[in-house]
Design a protein around this nucleic acid. Sequence first.
DNA 1: TGAAAACTGTCATGCACCTGTCAGATTGGC
DNA 2: GCCAATCTGACAGGTGCATGACAGTTTTCA
Lengths: 223, 223
Amino acid sequence: MRILVVEDTVDVGEAIVARLERLGHAVDWQQTGPDAEAAIKVQRYDLIVLDVMLPGKDGMAVLADCRATGVKTPVLILTARSRIDDRVSALDYGADDYLTKPFDFRELEARVRALLRRSGGSSVSQLQLGDVTLDQVSRSVSVAGRPCELTRREIALLEVFMLRPQKVFTKPELLDQLFSFDKDAGENAIELYVGRLRRKLHAARMEIRTLRGLGYQAVEREA
Amino acid sequence: MRILVVEDTVDVGEAIVARLERLGHAVDWQQTGPDAEAAIKVQRYDLIVLDVMLPGKDGMAVLADCRATGVKTPVLILTARSRIDDRVSALDYGADDYLTKPFDFRELEARVRALLRRSGGSSVSQLQLGDVTLDQVSRSVSVAGRPCELTRREIALLEVFMLRPQKVFTKPELLDQLFSFDKDAGENAIELYVGRLRRKLHAARMEIRTLRGLGYQAVEREA
DNA sequence: TGAAAACTGTCATGCACCTGTCAGATTGGC
DNA sequence: GCCAATCTGACAGGTGCATGACAGTTTTCA
């Protein structure tokens, strides 16, 4: 999943980014309101974590402008203030959830998961396709009940496929989902990881099909 | 376990902190109501030991505000007064237990243990995984019935793992559980202690697995 | 009280695995 | 058959983890 973190305090920002990247997400980090808006215009995100107190432009204003311009990405507001009207106005402006600072990282993770899940459509944190199960919480994969050792990137790629079975992903699309701005990679990397996934999942009742010239697609395989 | 002690009398505060640290807990100590509230907002605790008489803000008020903002951490109230209505109001405000000063430290320890145990979900004070047994009261560990010499920190870490077998703990998460504010350590410390635990428990039917990039996990080992 | 022993956490080193690029092999379409 | 797209093995660099040595601190014990 691709996430934008907007937070001006370096310490906090770095901590959040590290935490979310560790979960296998592609995370971009902006420190001001205008920079955040620029990033949102350029890139589609699955989630935006937005601090309220920002230099340049208030987080709430950024949120309002986003919604006004039709951006429907889920937004998690971070607010240092805990007054009721703040929470209410956050939700009124179109936020999907809020968290008052300072917060526990485990709670942040839980809310992030909840929002990503909600937008992903499914309500469980276990994805399933054929006999392959991906647990989004423990970031583990099993085939026919047996645990399957995958690396972080492999899991991230598999997650993209499993969130939308049948959907055909182009390579640029997959690159967007897997890499953040600074860590850009060639399209070859995708081919490589598809290959690795295929090898590790060769016994599964699921396969990643190549649609020449179009991209890749995950489908359930008949027994 | 991570504990916050709120007590303005230096002698008493130091004594409580020393006593609880000796049991292997990570203890933070605040001396005023506002400071305590700030700490609670920043950090998640497994238990709060709260004096009623405090400069700045009354302990009971701190407790009430905590509960109002959804903090569910168990709270043990220390009160110098022993009048019935005080006890009653403490429980009404959402305290889980109280102790009238002056008190015997052994009783404090017992009540702390009870509260921690209750929040941990288990009603027994003996944790078990594979052939490893951890006695939370005597803070001792044995493997297949044989006592095993572990240091405080080693036991504290093992306790975290054994309270939630299978769960994958990230290193920041483990640091949160093991270290207080002032005694912050690098993630290296976790790796180090995992290594030490592994060496001392190598013969046990339990192991701490490394999930590269994710964290550590305690599992029962097959014979 | 003072010295020895044990405990803690940092540093630095080394190793293993993960990552992404390259280049050559293979496949599919025309 | 030819070209482009894809696959795959090899490889270099990086990252994360394991581990030994060490210094500061605490605890123990005489």
